[in-house]
Every structure is written in structure tokens, then in C-alpha cells.
């Protein structure tokens, strides 16, 4: 029996390919900017918006996006030099969003099965509409990163220097959060809110020690993301396990192997 002949399998694999492009690039930016905790906050908070929109019969994904962007902007406005207050704010937004989401989904009759879908995702439910959305997102993201690669690098690396040279740091910041928010929302259906963070950050964490240049890390992260997505998908399929968690466990194992390789390399070089 060839599982590739099923349309939902084809869709899932295509989604994995398209999401890997988004995840490898955005994930690299997040890891390099050391914004991992912030992204965890944004993605979990988005669950609040999802719950509220679901309760009122609106498109829940739109709700997730709205809250993701608002949370990103609010956190972005706080001064990240005052790290303690900044992290506290992220923690509060993270927990508050989750709580609101759970309450609204609980008071909505018959929503319990959906709760799990949004939290853990299911790549087998991806529709061709979803695929088109991710495809368009990939195109816009790639174009933006290619055209603004150098100023983006200066923004990530040294904000004051960027500002001194006439780069509008605020525009870059908002664009950054906008791209992150959309990426999170696009990934919710496939891997779920809880696992978005892992899929975004594991590939660049694996590849970073092996490359010296930002775009090399991005490219390698896309490949690694695709590998763990596809590998995880087939493992989950044949072992009859949920896809998202298997993908993440595979990623974590790879990360552990990569870290050991790295320390071995350092030891013997």
C-alpha cells in the first residue's frame, strides 16, 4: 500500500515543505536575536484570541493572529534592556492568553475536541487553502529577506549603529513581529500552539554552531526542518502516533546529537 497516493498525505508533506521554508528563516532570526522566550509568549498568548473568536463564531485563526500581533507589539514596546521586567511581561502575557483561551473554549458547547487540535495540531487536516496561504507567506518572506538582508542583519546585530545610519529600527521591529505572528498562526494547524516554538527554534539551534553566516544558517535550518518534519511524519504514521510530538522528539534527538558532535569537535581540534 502506497500512503503517498492519499491526498491528505500529499497535503501534509507539501505543508511540511512549505512550513520548513518559513520556519527555517523566521526561526533563525528568532534564535539569533535571542527572542525564543518572547516567541513562546506570543504563540501561547494567541490561544486567547483563538478561544474568544471561536466562542463568538468567528474564524479562530484570525483571532489567534490578532492576539499574536498585539502581544508581539506590546512586548516589543517594552524596553528589552530591562531584562527582568521584559521577561516578567512575557510570562504574564503567556499565561494570561492561555487562560483566556481555555475558559472561552470551555464555555463554548462541544468545543473540547477542537481544544486539542489547536494545542497539538494535526498536519493531516491541512487543506489546500492552508497550503496556498503558507506558499504566499513563503514568497513574501523570501523576497523581504533577500531584498533587505543587509539592513536586517545590522538591525539584529547592532540596533544603535543601524539607527545612526538611518535605518528605521521601529519599522524593522514591527515587520519582525508581523512576520513572526503570521508564521505562528500558519503553523498552529499543523503542529499546534504548544509545539510551534519547538519547530521554530530546534533547526537553527542544530545548525548555528556549524556555520558562520546568517543566510547559511537559514538555508541549513530549512533543510533540517524539512528532514525532521518528513522523518517525524512517517514515523508517526507507521507507529500510529500523533505527528506533532513525534516531529519535536525527533528534532530534540537530532539537537542532542548535533551538540555532542560539536563538543567532540571542540575537544579534538
Amino acid at each position: 500500500m502506497n500512503i503517498l497516493q492519499y491526498e491528505f498525505v500529499q497535503n501534509a508533506l507539501l505543508a511540511g515543505f512549505l512550513l520548513s521554508i518559513a520556519s527555517g528563516i523566521i526561526g533563525t532570526l528568532i534564535v539569533v536575536k535571542r527572542d525564543i522566550f518572547l516567541v513562546g509568549g506570543i504563540s501561547h498568548a494567541s490561544f486567547g484570541g483563538l478561544g474568544i473568536f471561536y466562542h463568538f463564531g468567528l474564524n479562530p485563526i484570525l483571532g489567534a493572529f490578532t492576539v499574536a500581533f498585539l502581544a508581539g507589539s506590546t512586548i516589543g514596546l517594552s524596553d528589552d534592556k530591562k531584562l527582568h521586567a521584559h521577561n516578567a511581561l512575557i510570562g504574564v502575557i503567556w499565561a494570561f492568553g492561555m487562560s483566556v483561551g481555555i475558559i472561552f473554549l470551555t464555555i463554548t458547547p462541544g468545543s473540547a475536541p477542537n481544544l486539542l487540535t489547536y494545542l497539538f495540531g494535526d498536519v493531516l487536516t491541512v487543506s489546500s487553502g492552508d497550503l496556498l496561504n503558507i506558499f504566499v507567506y513563503d514568497l513574501v518572506l523570501l523576497l523581504t529577506v533577500i531584498l533587505f538582508y543587509k539592513p536586517l542583519m545590522v538591525y539584529l546585530f547592532d540596533k544603535e549603529f543601524a539607527q545612526l545610519h538611518g535605518i528605521n529600527v521601529r519599522v524593522y521591529r514591527y515587520l519582525f513581529y508581523l512576520f513572526i505572528s503570521i508564521a505562528i498562526v500558519l503553523m498552529i494547524r499543523s503542529v499546534g500552539i504548544i509545539l510551534v516554538l519547538a519547530l521554530l527554534t530546534i533547526p537553527p539551534l542544530i545548525t548555528m554552531p556549524f556555520f558562520k553566516r546568517l543566510h547559511h544558517i537559514m538555508f541549513a535550518s530549512v533543510i533540517v526542518c524539512l528532514l525532521i518534519f518528513t522523518g517525524g511524519f512517517f514515523t508517526a504514521y507507521f507507529m500510529n502516533l500523533p505527528t506533532g510530538p513525534v516531529i519535536i522528539i525527533l528534532g530534540t534527538v537530532l539537537l542532542a546529537i548535533a551538540k555532542s558532535l560539536c563538543s567532540l569537535q571542540k575537544k579534538y581540534s
Binding site: 543587509k150 545590522v154 549603529f161 544558517i217
Partner: peptide, 23 residues
């Protein structure tokens, strides 16, 4: 201390960013 030394950038590209306003 104002910037991140772990940033993946080569010395050559780093020096080049000094001309970023001409980009």
C-alpha cells in the same frame, strides 16, 4: 557590550555594514 558577539557574521561582512546607509 551593546552588541551580541555570538552573532553569525564574518569580519569582512561586519566591516561592510559600515556602509549600510548606501545600501
Amino acid at each position: 557590550t551593546t552588541f551580541d558577539r555570538q552573532m553569525p557574521i564574518r569580519v569582512y561582512d561586519f566591516i561592510e555594514t559600515g556602509m549600510i546607509n548606501r545600501y
